[in-house]
Each structure stands twice: as C-alpha cells, then as structure tokens.
Simulated assay, not measured.
Amino acid sequence: MKYLILGTGLQGRVVGYDILKFEADAEIIFADIDQKNLETAKALVRDSRTSFIGFDIQNTEETVALMLKSDLIIVCLPHDGGTTDAVYRALAKANGKKAVFSDYWLWPRHHAHHEALVKAGVLAVPGMGIAPGFANICVGQLDHEFDQLEEATMYVGGLPVDKGIHPLDYMESFNLEAMLDMYITPATVIEDGKVAKKPNLTVFDKLIIPGHGEVEVFWTDGLCTLEKNMKGKGVKKIAECTLRWPGHIAKMRELEAMGFFSTEEIDVNGVTVRPKDVSEKLFQKMWAKKWGLRDMTYLYVVGKGMKDGKFLEKAYELKTYSDEEAGITSMELATAYPISIAAMMVAKDDSGRTGIIDPELYFIGDKFHELVMHLGERGIPVYEK
C-alpha cells in the first residue's frame, strides 16, 4: 500500500514510523513545507521504503499530483481554516482516493466539503488521534452497545509521571499553541440534552489515575462532532475533561487573570506583541520535554445507560508512557497510533462509501474491536471496565 503523509511534525512522523513497522509492503511519501520537519522524520524512520518531498498545501496542482501517487492520504497539517480548505480542494480533484485526518477542531468546515468528496468518489475520515479521536470513538461505541446511552464523559490528560520536578507540574507533550487555546476556550458540553457552555480553567472534580494518584478535572472543548452526532439520540450529558496534577489549574487561572493569555495586541518598547504569544514562547522553554523523565497519557471514557432493561455503567481505559529510547512522547504515541491504524484500516475499505464520515460513526462494532486489537499489538491495551 502506498501512503502520502502531509505534514511531518509531532504526529505525522510517528504515524509513518508506525505504519512502516507494522505493514511490510508499505511505501510512504512524507511531504512538508518545512525542511527541518522532513529531516527529523527521516532520522526517526530510517527506512528505504520512504521518500521525502517539500510541498506547499496552497499549491493545489502540486498537492493533487502528490495525492495521485498514493492509495491513501494521511493529513497531519495545522487545523486552521485556510489549510483545511486547501486540503479539501485538492482531495476533491483526487478522484477515488481515501484520506484520514489527524484530530480536528473546525469540524463544520470539514463537513462543508462533504458533497464535493461524494462527487469525486473520495472517502475521508477526519478527527483521528486521542482526544478528539479515540475518545470520541469510545463514546460512539458505547452508544452502539447501549440500548439507550444516557451520559458519557471523556477524561484525558498528558502528564509528567513524576510530580514536583517540572515547573507547574507540567511538561510539553503536544502542540503548546493548541493547549493554550484549550485553556482559554469555554467548553461546549451537553447537559440535560441541550448544548451548554462551561467556563474555562474551572476545576470541578477529581480522579484517580491507577498507580499514580489524584488529578484535578476541568472542562475542555473537545466534543467536536459528538455535538451533532449524539443530538436527538436521547443522550442527556456529554463532556470532555482534561486532567492535570493538583494545583496546576489554579496557577493557570492566576496567569490568565493577569493577562498572560490575552490575544489583544500590546506595545512593548515599540514592538507589537500578543501576551499569549509571549507566554507560549516562555512555556516552550520552561516545559520542554526532558528525555529520561517519563511522561504518560491517560484516557478514561465512561458511559451510563440502559441495556436489556437494566441501568449499566461501562468504561474504556487507556494508559501509555513515553518511549524514551525512541524519543517519542506518550501523547505522540497515543495520538499517532490511532491515526496510523485508522489509515491502514481505511485503506482496505472496499465498502464503496464516500464523503466525510466521522470517526465515532465509522469505528464502531467490529471496526472498534479491530482498532482496539491493533492498539494492544502496539503495547497500548484498552481495558473494558
């Protein structure tokens, strides 16, 4: 199978690394506008079945030509609107191809291209990763298993394993810009069957991570397409929550109150800056991954509802650690592996389905169990509780 990976940053290069490890006849084209990203990917995979190409996603003709060289396209590019639209413009001209996207936030923008992909005979599954991604898939599977899903909560967090070592008990494990956006964005949830908003950086609960202890729980804006796909199904409550070591969020709230996360431009000695951008640069240095000190990613998705006339509760749990030897963080593994597995599964899809299919609608039933099996093969077991 021939794969094209667009974007070779934290996710894309690990996705390719995994496919090459688990699929003997795979060939991969890594494409990126950033030569440094390509060099980093090349150093990681070290495989003769690969090629590395510079490209610009805004050049539609160039992108289509690349897509036509592959059987399946894996999109690990930034999630801004301009980039998203550019990808779909190219996909709509790559007749008959299949695509998998890394996790996404502007999901209505993706669905605006549905009819164009149907017309082109293209199948696309966006929104893969850990959260959004596998977390949302677990909710979709719970809805599939219950006669009536009443509520579901997704708990997820990437954390340093050891407390008291890193500043503010955090260490960068994924894109810091996206994390700060998550910190300042009110969370969309479903409450009493209706869409509602929860305040950002607000701790409202505690959770125990087995073997590690208590973490604090705060709402984050990660429902994505669950907001529309669970609508009208009788689900009364859905929320995504992020986990941090105790005390972290209180310190973040203080910084927010002092204006460190403001996106309004200010003048500093004749230079115009946004405080959030400055904070991001400071955090990148302060929270840089320290190899030799493990980090972990933990996911716990719990659902409650009716099955065979009984009220039941069921959960799916995942926990993984950084690969210090390979130089891959736990969040890179937990995000990239669902993408790579999804890519290999979608590449073999002969159902004839086209258009955009959300992950929580695609990976249910037998496909869910296959996805879980492949995660287990990679040393990431998913436990049913």
Score class of each variant (00 low, 15 high):
residue 2 K to I: 03
residue 5 I to S: 07
residue 14 V to H: 09
residue 14 V to Y: 15
residue 21 K to L: 09
residue 22 F to H: 11
residue 28 I to F: 07
residue 36 K to H: 10
residue 37 N to H: 14
residue 57 I to G: 00
residue 60 T to D: 07
residue 62 E to I: 01
residue 66 L to C: 02
residue 68 L to E: 10
residue 75 V to T: 12
residue 78 P to D: 14
residue 80 D to K: 02
residue 86 A to H: 10
residue 89 R to E: 09
residue 94 A to D: 03
residue 106 L to Y: 13
residue 110 H to C: 04
residue 112 A to F: 12
residue 113 H to W: 15
residue 119 K to A: 04
residue 120 A to G: 01
residue 124 A to G: 01
residue 128 M to K: 04
residue 134 F to P: 00
residue 140 G to W: 15
residue 148 Q to D: 06
residue 152 A to R: 08
residue 156 V to D: 08
residue 163 K to F: 03
residue 164 G to L: 07
residue 166 H to M: 14
residue 167 P to I: 06
residue 167 P to H: 03
residue 174 F to L: 00
residue 178 A to I: 11
residue 179 M to E: 13
residue 185 T to E: 08
residue 188 T to I: 12
residue 194 K to F: 04
residue 203 V to H: 15
residue 211 G to N: 09
residue 224 C to G: 01
residue 226 L to P: 00
residue 228 K to M: 03
residue 228 K to C: 02
residue 229 N to Y: 15
residue 233 K to W: 08
residue 234 G to I: 10
residue 234 G to E: 13
residue 235 V to Y: 14
residue 239 A to Q: 10
residue 251 K to S: 09
residue 252 M to V: 05
residue 266 I to L: 10
residue 271 V to N: 11
residue 271 V to T: 13
residue 272 T to S: 12
residue 279 S to Y: 09
residue 281 K to W: 13
residue 294 R to D: 06
residue 304 K to T: 08
residue 309 G to D: 06
residue 312 L to V: 08
residue 316 Y to R: 04
residue 317 E to R: 12
residue 319 K to S: 05
residue 321 Y to H: 09
residue 322 S to C: 01
residue 327 G to E: 13
residue 329 T to Y: 15
residue 335 T to K: 05
residue 346 V to C: 06
residue 348 K to M: 06
residue 351 S to P: 00
residue 365 G to V: 14
residue 375 L to M: 14
residue 381 P to M: 14
residue 384 E to C: 07
